[in-house]
């Protein structure tokens, strides 16, 4: 399981569907996420991007940073637009092209959840990707319901740091009983690309991928440790890597064994936390991990 990082190089396609010169911040995890995703998805892909960082990274008019078509759309409408795009392609009898909704955590957890839930309940045939950088980074680091407990943002500043837990979006999506829901991290390219491959193959229903994408700007971390932080999130079980098929078949891809403090202490957004706060976060992570472990053990599918 832990070996999935080693020798990754041989298995990763060298082909890129992204141009340089995009305007993501230095060290942007979301930019890395797109590179990996497209390595698996390939040329026959259409992107639907609502308002989010990627709305900007994809290029101001008349530029584009991707070698595949992108449909820019309104904040709340990724799920709906992707449904429509799929319907249009179906009418044109194009079943080969993969429709991908590519939204941030704001557009998924908060503003777009209605359209998303609606589309998912209809089991629309597209891949929905939430690249999660845990706040509204594009507009200046406002908290979202993906912002973790303990984090400071510009709307949870100073001693008013966020005291509610991060919404568990993957479980919400799994509860719709879609064919495939999984988490992935930019620090585990092979695992992530493999999951995009699985999602691409499972045509006919909604596939949801929750991708952890670090944000040096919003998290107050040095740019060079952007991938390292994403890896630490997995190694500390803050962001476990797992897959759920049909909403019930759980599979865990990595078992972390490091304390959360290794993850928290290197980030500016958490630097105010006391030992007691960190203890509380550790307890939450342990509780979530235990819950996940039990779901795995009680798998209805064998």
């Amino acid at each position: 399981m832990e070996d999935c990082q080693i020798m990754l190089q041989q298995k990763i396609s060298d082909k890129d569907y992204m141009y340089p010169g995009h305007v993501a911040c230095p060290g942007c995890g979301a930019a890395i996420a797109m590179r990996f995703a497209l390595k698996a998805l390939g040329e026959k892909t259409m992107m639907v991007i609502p308002a989010c960082c990627w709305g900007v990274i994809a290029g101001p008019y008349p530029q584009t940073s991707l070698k595949v078509p992108i449909l820019h759309t309104a904040f709340a409408t990724a799920g709906a637009t992707a449904s429509g795009l799929r319907a249009a392609l179906d009418m044109k009898e194009d079943t080969e092209t993969t429709v991908v909704a590519w939204a941030g955590d704001g557009g998924t957890f908060d503003i777009g959840i209605q359209a998303l839930s609606g589309a998912v309940e209809r089991n629309e045939d597209f891949i929905y990707v939430c690249y999660d950088n845990e706040a509204y980074m594009n507009t200046g680091v406002q908290r979202s319901s993906a912002t973790p407990f303990g984090s400071r943002t510009t709307t949870t500043p100073g001693k008013d740091w966020k005291r509610s837990r991060k919404k568990n979006i993957t479980e919400i999506l799994a509860a719709h009983r879609i064919p495939y829901a999984a988490t992935a991290s930019i620090a585990f390219p092979e695992d992530m690309i493999q999951k995009f491959n699985v999602a691409k193959q499972l045509k006919g229903g909604t596939r949801f991928l929750h991708v952890f994408a670090s944000c040096p700007t919003g998290w107050r971390i040095p740019t060079e440790i952007s991938v390292k932080i994403a890896r630490l999130a997995v190694q500390t079980n803050v962001f476990p890597l797992y897959e759920i098929k049909n909403g019930i078949d759980y599979r865990l891809n990595y078992k972390g064994d490091r304390p959360v403090t290794d993850y928290l202490k290197v980030q500016g957004r958490f630097k105010h936390l006391t030992d007691d706060d960190i203890k509380q976060i550790q307890d939450m992570v342990d509780e979530d991990w235990e819950l996940l472990r039990r779901k795995m053990e009680n798998n209805l599918v064998t």
Binding site: P20, G27, I32, I186, T223, E224, S226
Partner: peptide, 26 residues
């Protein structure tokens, strides 16, 4: 891992395309 697609092959050697490298250090 380069977010900028700025590590490219030149004569089968990896080189950093300084036109685009933002110096993130990843």
């Amino acid at each position: 891992f380069c977010p900028e697609v700025a590590v490219v092959f030149k004569d089968s050697r990896r080189v950093i395309d300084l036109n685009y490298c933002k110096g993130c250090g990843i």
